[in-house]
Design a binder for these strands. Structure first.
Lengths: 210, 210
DNA sequence: TAGATTGTTAATCGATTAACAATC
DNA sequence: TAGATTGTTAATCGATTAACAATC
């Protein structure tokens, strides 16, 4: 359907979504690309171009209806459906994600955690059970699982990713800091390399100092 | 010094750094842009262009010395110096960062956590004390603090960022999902919007399904 | 209708890739 | 020296911005 939309555009959509929710909460009914551009510090041109990749959501002479646009972007981002999430690696980061309620309100529901540490297997995080990693196959065969968050050491990430692909997972949200080697085109991989981000920060500090 | 280098290039540097460390650990001494390009799945041209923004690290007919290049990129990223980090918001995510030993080995040392919750103030995470947020000013005046990680609810993020800027902090690593309004050009802001990343993932799942 | 603002085409800008002379 | 591979310039590609006709 919407083919060939660049990831540069896609990456900006959540940000629009965020600003529109704020406007909505403030009771603002309509917004022009110009007003939004001032708020978001991007060009009005970019906003109109970005949105028109997905359809004409505005009206000449009026602008955009905030609620309508908010909901449309929600649909574009797939937030109108529920995504079941499992978390592999129930360490601090895994538990942080499991505990983060906001993801639920966006439709991302954590259904299980997995770990290899016998001391935490069987325990619960916010009512969600920590399973043994060995049970991954059985669990995935018996539950609908859309997304797996990998919050585990990088040594076993590649192997686990492979198992997940074979189990027909749709997407991997990878926090392990390797670049996963997933050939299967139908599996979406999104990397969050926190240390890369910290290094970029550090680069900019050093640059600023000069 | 190195002026006008685009963030697109900077963002790729940590990735080079990662691959070079892997090569180093494997005992590889030299690598050509062509070999590296196959490994990293980028063009050799891009590698050479990227690196030459910072200087000529290679040698015609030979390629790049892995150890030398690794160390040079480390310097470019400011990893040859220690950065002191404070974490504001000692919830799951804050504690996950404090517990993550790898940052230490990159020279990012967590020196304190802050929170408003009296139940956790005074406790420790990996030997690092959780302070009352009220003590922020006193702490920063008495310790060298380079980076503040904001792992707190978005409601108070703007206000806290302002306090940090006034305290002369160098950089803010922002996990609160607002776009911080920091005017001061000398303060580096790096945003990590986990929910944005999850929405991008979700977009790509929906797109793939069609 | 007149004014406002979109949707969309055209122009510009920047980033990526290709090519090749320089040189180890 | 000959072969290999960089550093760098030129060509291409894609993304952003500007402009404006369409239209509410």
């Amino acid at each position: 359907m919407e083919k060939g939309i660049s990831q540069a555009v896609v990456r900006r959509m959540p940000r629009y979504y965020r600003y529109l929710r704020d406007l909505l909460e403030q009771g603002v009914e309509r917004v022009s690309s110009n007003e939004l551009s001032k708020l978001m510090k991007v060009t009005a041109s970019q906003i109109r171009q970005d949105l028109n990749n997905f359809g004409g959501f505005g009206q000449q002479g009026y602008g955009y209806n905030v609620r309508f646009l908010y909901e449309e972007i929600g649909k574009i981002l797939g937030l109108d459906q529920t995504h079941n999430l499992i978390i592999i690696g129930a360490g601090n980061l895994g538990q942080a994600i499991a505990n983060y309620g906001r993801f639920d309100s966006l439709g991302f529901v954590t259904v299980a955690l997995f770990d290899v540490n016998p001391e935490i297997i069987g325990k619960e995080v916010r009512g969600i059970k920590i399973h043994a990693l060995d049970e991954l196959e059985v669990f995935c065969q018996n539950h609908k699982v859309d997304i797996a968050a990998l919050t585990m050491p990088k040594q076993s990430a590649d192997n686990t990713a492979q198992r997940l692909v074979e189990l027909g997972i749709r997407a991997i949200w990878n926090f392990a800091h390797v670049d996963l080697d997933v050939d299967d085109e139908s599996v979406v991989v999104e990397n969050v390399h926190l240390s890369d981000s910290l290094m970029q920060l550090s680069y900019n500090i050093v640059k600023n100092k000069q």
